[in-house]
Design a protein around this nucleic acid. Structure first.
Lengths: 143, 143
DNA sequence: TATTGTTATACTCTATAACTATA
DNA sequence: TATAGTTATAGAGTATAACAATA
């Protein structure tokens, strides 16, 4: 949450992670914005890349109320990025499916994200990048 | 942006950083929510902890339009967390100053954040935590 | 003229509560 | 009764454009 002392005193791990988190989040936000997508819309597409969940399941993935998902999917659907398909096993439910246009867009976002992250971690040596990758993976794995 | 393969294949550095970023961002969000604060409001207080910037400067820190800052500060001011002070050097400008109540709240948030992050990085050894901290610091330092 | 900040407006995101339809 | 999803409503967060006041 601080912003000075970059080069001076080493950051505590909380500050280091907080700043890194906002930085990466900002990258997602900027890339999304270039395609008129919010972070949450980008995350939605990212999830639908390899899944076709129902609204409720989507709410659990995104940790949002299901009523929020309605609008989220509405707006994505209006743009032709996803579509609702009636579930065949449950008459109440729908499956949310990514469209070809949605898939194309999310691939593009992914590629741009990788490129920007590559620049950011370019200050590290390959060994350091591998190390960072492993450490970060271990932290998220316990979730 | 993926979510499976945690234990299986090692994550690419982009996925590892993306997941870590959302995780940390989520921690800030949850702690904030416990105090009826959004992430952006928490960040605002964090910035004001050691600064009393004008609206424009605040817009640069938060990378938002200045018109968005007006509402942000309005809501924080309504809750007694910050206050506007007319600048003495520039008749058009105001300084945004954190109040004692705001300072108290942000200290609490910081403490809770540190505690939760400590739990998250508890899967690492002290040496690994130091390593992660240094690597993350170097990435954010170049910003 | 340029800059600081606010206002008006419109849209996205979000939660809560009440509802419909199916299980 | 319980679950899947939507609707109505209200409020926060955001940007754009137009504005006021000061530099």
């Amino acid at each position: 949450m601080k912003r000075d002392e970059e080069a001076s005193a080493p950051l505590g791990i909380e500050d280091a992670l907080a700043q890194l988190s906002f930085l990466v989040h900002g990258v997602v936000g900027k890339i999304g914005a270039e395609h008129d997508l919010s972070v949450i819309q980008a995350r939605l597409l990212g999830i639908l890349r390899d899944r076709s969940p129902g609204m409720n399941e989507l709410a659990r993935y995104l940790e949002l109320d299901k009523s929020s998902i309605t609008g989220l999917v509405d707006r994505a659907e209006r743009r032709g990025l996803v579509r609702r398909e009636p579930s065949r096993s449950d008459g109440r439910a729908v499956d949310v499916v990514i469209t070809p246009a949605g898939r194309k867009l999310v691939s593009r976002l992914q590629a741009e994200f990788e490129k920007k992250i590559a620049v950011l971690v370019g200050v590290l040596t390959p060994a350091e990048r591998a190390s960072l990758s492993r450490l970060a993976s271990r932290i998220v794995a316990r979730d």
